[in-house]
């Protein structure tokens, strides 16, 4: 097990508000897999990534039963030790890559500064040459053809797709065990999107680098990930292998989500409505107690005001009082 998080709670402490933005969520990842973390906007996906890497601001407090990284509990370690492990083993890429690169520094310099000292073999005098060589190899590796031009450019002179490739290049230089991709293809054209996703997949298979793919795009998760975890309003809904979940979802939300994907091959009538749940996701100020899907759930009953425990069944982990497809 690469990563094993149990009952993670992230609390927002504000003068007007005191809520659990993530409420007892669990997630575990196998070594070398692509794991999709899916949820609507505001369901706490990015928050999870930040809690994992320890980059949350002071307004948030993080609690968990355990947060095991290769058998070590990250929350029990000292701040410094934790930083070291995270810097060594994890890397992160973001949505809007062009805004995630320092706008006043050239790409080359930005790549140079993240090259770890251990990469250099030659003497101090050949450093300059070596740096250039390493940076160029990296750019080629992530599939940038005009690497020379890219090396000398400022971020605003490159397209979003190129910027994301640069971000990935900077992320893989330390050959991390886990790459956290926080909506890496948000607001990109579909061809660029496919390029980026292919690149991630290639890195996953060739370098055995696990990827935590955080997205709201169900289709790319279905296409590229082996396992997935569904989040709703900060509560984990269901997790398991993608194939199983597709075939037999236990949670009503999961089923609903899959049916909401438009399918072009089936006999959908023209101008018919896609199936959705009534209502909208609750804002942080008005979270329902118990199962947060409660007010919108078609199968909600009296028990749903109590937070459901997660149940493990045939490799699925789900939290629902009244699951479907059980028979």
């Amino acid at each position: 097990m690469l990563l094993d998080v149990r009952n993670l709670t992230v609390k927002l402490n504000n003068d007007t508000l005191d809520v659990n933005a993530i409420d007892k969520m669990s997630l575990s990842m196998r070594d070398g897999s692509i794991h999709g973390l899916v949820g609507e906007t505001g369901s706490g996906k990015s928050l999870f990534a930040k809690a994992l890497t320890g980059t949350l601001s002071e307004k948030w407090t993080v609690q968990a039963d355990r947060m095991f990284w290769q058998g070590e509990d990250l929350l029990k370690l000292s701040e410094e030790k934790r930083r070291q492990i995270i810097n060594r083993d994890m890397a992160m890429i973001f949505q809007e890559p062009s805004r995630s690169l320092d706008p006043t520094v050239t790409i080359g310099e930005q790549i140079n500064e993240v090259i770890p000292k251990s990469e250099f073999q030659g003497s101090i005098w050949s450093r300059r040459q070596e740096r250039l060589q390493i940076a160029k190899n990296l750019l080629i590796k992530v599939g940038i053809k005009h690497y020379q031009q890219c090396y000398e450019s400022y971020p605003h002179e490159l397209s979003e797709g190129l910027c994301q490739k640069v971000m990935i290049a900077m992320a893989i230089i330390r050959s991390p065990k886990l790459l956290i991709a926080d909506e890496p293809t948000d607001a990109m054209e579909s061809t660029t999107k496919i390029q980026i996703m292919r690149l991630l997949q290639k890195l996953n298979t060739q370098k055995n680098m696990s990827v935590l793919l955080i997205t709201h795009d169900l289709e790319s998760v279905i296409n590229y990930a082996q396992e997935m975890t569904l989040l709703y309003s900060g509560q984990s809904v269901e997790s398991g292998s993608v194939r199983d979940l597709l075939k037999r979802p236990y949670h009503p939300y999961t089923e609903n989500l899959f049916t909401s994907i438009p399918k072009f091959n089936t006999d959908t009538r023209p101008k018919s409505r896609l199936q959705t749940l009534p209502g909208s996701t609750p804002p942080l100020q008005h979270l329902p107690i118990g199962c947060r899907l409660g007010p919108r759930c078609p199968r909600a009953q009296k028990e749903c005001v109590v937070t459901p425990k997660s149940v493990k069944l045939k490799g699925h982990l789900f939290s629902c009082h009244h699951p479907i497809n059980l028979d």
Binding site: T55, S100, V114
Partner: peptide, 23 residues
């Protein structure tokens, strides 16, 4: 966002401040 991104790249805070924030 680029400062947050730089934080996850494994730079020390001193590097972060002198190279990115100050400039």
């Amino acid at each position: 966002p680029y400062i947050k991104a730089a934080q996850t790249k494994g730079l020390t805070s001193w590097q972060l401040i002198t190279r990115h924030v100050f400039r």
